[in-house]
Design a protein around this nucleic acid. Sequence first.
DNA 1: CTGAAAGCGCTAACAC
DNA 2: GTGTTAGCGCTTTCAG
Lengths: 335, 335
Amino acid sequence: MSSIKDVAKLAGVSISTVSRVLSGSPNVGNSTRQRVEQAIETIGYKPNLLAQGLRSKRGNLIGLVVPEIHHETFSRLIEYTEEEVRAQGYNLITGNTHGQPDSEDEFIQSLLRRHVDGIIFSRVSDRSRALRILQKDGIPAVIIDRFLENEDIPTIVTDNYGAGVTAAKHLVDLGHTQFALITGPQNIALCRERQKGFAEYLESQGFALPHRNIYEGDFKFETGVDAAKYFLNNAVEFTGLWAENDLMALGAMNTFIRAKKRIPSEISVMGMDDVRSATIVIPSLTTIAQPFSAMCSKAVDLLFRMIDGNSFKDNKIVLPSNLITRESTGRYVVP
Amino acid sequence: MSSIKDVAKLAGVSISTVSRVLSGSPNVGNSTRQRVEQAIETIGYKPNLLAQGLRSKRGNLIGLVVPEIHHETFSRLIEYTEEEVRAQGYNLITGNTHGQPDSEDEFIQSLLRRHVDGIIFSRVSDRSRALRILQKDGIPAVIIDRFLENEDIPTIVTDNYGAGVTAAKHLVDLGHTQFALITGPQNIALCRERQKGFAEYLESQGFALPHRNIYEGDFKFETGVDAAKYFLNNAVEFTGLWAENDLMALGAMNTFIRAKKRIPSEISVMGMDDVRSATIVIPSLTTIAQPFSAMCSKAVDLLFRMIDGNSFKDNKIVLPSNLITRESTGRYVVP
DNA sequence: CTGAAAGCGCTAACAC
DNA sequence: GTGTTAGCGCTTTCAG
């Protein structure tokens, strides 16, 4: 790899002039600038990012913290973020934490040792010491997809309450009058919000959501299965079901079908996320898509503005979700 | 962040001694070493990776090149690789290239500018200039999951021929006598190998695989759909079908079911990869799992040995795949 | 065994 | 406008 010296020599200037050209400083004569640019071109020179980072304390690097890289939601987050970041001339280092605070802290440490310019968190563990470490070091950070209360870090989230409303409204519009809900873990704020939106819309329309019609899952396919079995075994009455994510909806639907229930004529099922499987199964799954692409680009945008020195404390950006109607929900017909 | 100077001062030694302790040099007195380690501990010192990398020309960094981060296969590759790499104290930078040589080259460039220690490719584009660049710079590289002929770069692949044999044998063992195949793009070597294994095993057992029973897809769900339509519209006769990946198998199965074919009693379907949807659909999909975890750990292992100076030219490691029997394949019964 | 000193490639005062 | 110079934090001769 060639260095700034080679360029300086070829252009017949000092290395500081080359550096100035590189950083777009106005204090360079026009003809000099051209000569330098010419030299850079012919040599094919690219600044050494380690040297640049060491000196300027800006590593040209963004960190992304996710709990599981291979989960569909996160891999989409990674893909979008990587593209946004790279478009700005930065690289992205992604760390898989399994939600373990230790792993999270260790990863953050290695990022700090590389002079990361900013970090995007998706699903910070509540017990993480990471955020505090960052704030101490003044590293910009944004949180995507999950909202941590009591933290003054900019956050980009889906309108989870609105998603609940959308789900309920879709089912009500189809004529359903009895409903069931499979939630995610209740200790997660966004789950409570989704449930709130769902329940409150039903209530506003004069429908009830009895306690026994709600099953708490953990976002996995298997708890969707468990939920369906619970509903079936306890003869819970409903025709419209929403699960707070697709995997649980898919697990429930699979179980209903195996129990010879007809979907959507006997039970309408809808999920949230729009995972790949939603279009693969029969019937295809009605769902609510989160605006991941927009969320990522917003997150990256915000992060770079923070890197540029802007402050966005107490900033929470809420993006709308989007109903995708497929085959698993249908008009309620009186039996 | 504290620096090596702080440690030196606290331990009452020079920075070179601290550096020696850090690198595990034997030329340090025992009591000195202890004092330094103590100081490192109390300060919580971690070496600055940019400074280390700049000086030693080793960035403590591994690059991973994939065409699409969010594709299930690749996101698994990323997750496994990230963990292996991090266990060695390195970080992983993943680059999404969309298979575009330009994007690939640009990404490689940024890695070089960070003094990457090694790069793992999954699916290099054939037209890529990247590999040549690396060889010139002497950067260790390994290729995972796809074999490039005419390149003397270590490669870790699934036994694709063996997978074809496994698929054919499974169907033959179930009593099927007429077969069909949905292939990936014929210009990809691994597709030709899978097909070869499938066809040759059938032939060895006295069965034919007529040309019209083969449909060339592109690994996407949609071409599985197209394949099934082709088979249906042309009344191609078979009861045992293998698709060279799950997405195509799923597309075909979906289409057969919508055309009122019973699976597996009328048509047995199997795929390859063991994607998430394979267990979600009904019937669940019989498939052939690739040993991704083992492939990644092998790849990382190989890479680190190359980084340590070992040479592995002309090395091709083939790992066996693994049949997973589910509901979509069943015994052939004479109609 | 240990320290002094040079320098990796770059940026940012500071001079002129 | 442009060059000189002092480091960023570390590794690695080279002395002693």
